[in-house]
Amino acid sequence: GTPECTHLLASQKVFEKELGACGSDGDCVLETMTKRSFALRDIEEHQQAPLEAAALQRFAGGAIFQNPGHKSAPLLQRIQRGMDIYPLPHMALPNGNTLVWGFQPHNATVQSLVVVNHQGAVQLLGAVDGIYLGLPKDKTLPELDANARITLFVRDPQALAQNLPALRAWAAASILGFNVDCGGADAARCRAAEAIPVPILAYRLSCPQKVPGKALVNRCPLPLPAVSGNVSPGLFWQ
């Protein structure tokens, strides 16, 4: 499991040992359980994703997005649909930002991601479709959905250049199911996942509109910047 899971299991064993040592001493039992309660609360706070609903709503605003083959819908609604789990997985990126992601319950191929900076301000949103477990462990050829794509939304185009290497690594991790060790036995599978061409589209949210109130972001596509960076999919191992 992950380092967090290993730490949690180890601390639980210590707690059980200390509790057993209390025997029938009620004060000792109460003190030990209180100590464990505070420790679990600290762990929960550490696992909580640094993403506030208000910050997400401010960034998405009233933007409307039309996914190919679907009716147009509020962007915020689509992002929330792909993050309907708790706690949300998140990982610190090499550039100091944090990537938060999730998926739709019972339909993990519908995913969303959000990049926030160290102050919790949203930098980028992403709607991800059809890539999760696109390279199953017993397969050598990818099995991505026909509509597989990652759609990114920014207000500052610089956010694309700053985060694109990590987002591509995250996509490879999603294709592998977030459970591979890229530095060990799964290195070849990681390289194979990184080589799978996943369509990535980008749009600018601060998009001038022809009709007031109709903030259709599809009218403002952005080119993907040429970036370099070596972020391993193993960073997102869960």
Rank of each mutant, 00 (worst) to 15 (best):
L19E: 00
L19G: 03
L19C: 07
G20E: 11
G23I: 11
S24H: 14
S24V: 15
D25Q: 13
D25H: 07
G26L: 13
G26N: 08
G26F: 09
L30K: 05
L30H: 15
L30S: 11
E31Q: 15
M33D: 13
M33I: 11
M33P: 14
T34I: 07
T34L: 14
T34H: 01
S37I: 08
F38N: 12
F38L: 12
A39K: 05
D42K: 10
E45V: 12
Q47D: 04
Q48G: 11
A49T: 00
A49Q: 03
A49M: 02
A49I: 03
A49Y: 04
P50H: 05
P50Y: 03
E52R: 15
E52S: 10
A53C: 04
A53Q: 12
A54M: 10
A55M: 10
L56T: 00
L56I: 05
L56Q: 09
R58C: 12
F59E: 10
F59K: 05
G61S: 02
G62Y: 04
G62M: 01
A63V: 00
I64G: 06
Q66Y: 04
N67D: 15
G69C: 07
H70N: 07
H70G: 02
H70I: 03
K71Y: 13
L76F: 09
Q77L: 10
Q77Y: 13
R78A: 13
I79Q: 07
Q80M: 15
R81L: 12
R81D: 14
I85Y: 01
I85W: 11
I85T: 10
Y86W: 15
P89G: 12
H90F: 13
H90K: 02
M91T: 14
L93Y: 12
P94M: 00
P94A: 08
P94T: 08
N95D: 11
G96C: 07
G96W: 04
N97L: 06
T98Y: 06
V100Q: 00
V100E: 00
W101C: 04
G102Q: 03
G102C: 03
G102T: 04
P105W: 02
P105V: 01
H106D: 10
N107Y: 12
A108L: 05
T109E: 06
V110K: 06
Q111C: 14
V114K: 01
V115M: 06
V115S: 10
V115N: 03
V115G: 05
V115C: 06
V116N: 09
G120Y: 02
G120I: 10
V122C: 02
Q123K: 09
G126L: 04
G126D: 00
A127K: 11
A127P: 04
D129E: 13
Y132T: 08
L133E: 12
L133N: 15
G134T: 11
L135R: 08
P136M: 13
K137T: 11
K137P: 14
D138L: 15
K139A: 15
K139W: 15
